[in-house]
């Protein structure tokens, strides 16, 4: 299963630093996220793209994690040569992260389930 199946994400920029939130659709999945979406895994996912460090902040009250990636934006938003200088797409890249399958099928977990959103 992909991270995208249980969480959503938004990326933001400040200078040469990108932050990527990872937010559980269902707050009860937070412990699973906290166990599997570690700073080391995020750093490995962005290997070759991010030149600095990855720091993880935990927000159990929101069911969310916040990752701060230094050296992530081609030297800084205002001078980067990159097509996506702000790193707006970093969140989408992280949602591709492969996770072990959750044991529960959790049909109610997904907020868009009633709209036919696919579940693992």
């Amino acid at each position: 299963m992909k991270l995208r199946d249980i969480a959503h994400s938004r990326s933001g920029d400040k200078g040469n630093i990108s932050n990527i939130s990872v937010i559980a659709f269902d707050e009860t999945d937070y412990p699973f996220l906290a166990e599997h979406v570690t700073a080391a895994r995020v750093a490995a996912h962005f290997d070759g793209i991010v030149t600095g460090t990855v720091t993880r902040y935990e927000l159990p009250a929101l069911g969310a994690l916040n990752f701060v990636l230094t050296g992530a934006l081609g030297g800084g938003v205002t001078r980067s040569l990159a097509l996506d200088a702000h790193g707006k797409g970093m969140s989408s890249a992280l949602l591709d992260l492969e996770l072990p399958d959750l044991e529960l099928p959790a049909p109610d977990r997904h907020p868009n389930n009633q709209n036919g959103g696919e579940r693992p």
């Binding site: 938004r10 920029d13 400040k14 932050n19 939130s21 902040y57 927000l59 907020p111």
Partner: peptide, 18 residues
Amino acid sequence: VSAATVKEQLLYEIHDPA
């Protein structure tokens, strides 16, 4: 406006949330 839209924006461009 949902819990999800608000949570995403709460953490937008935030480093240490504390």
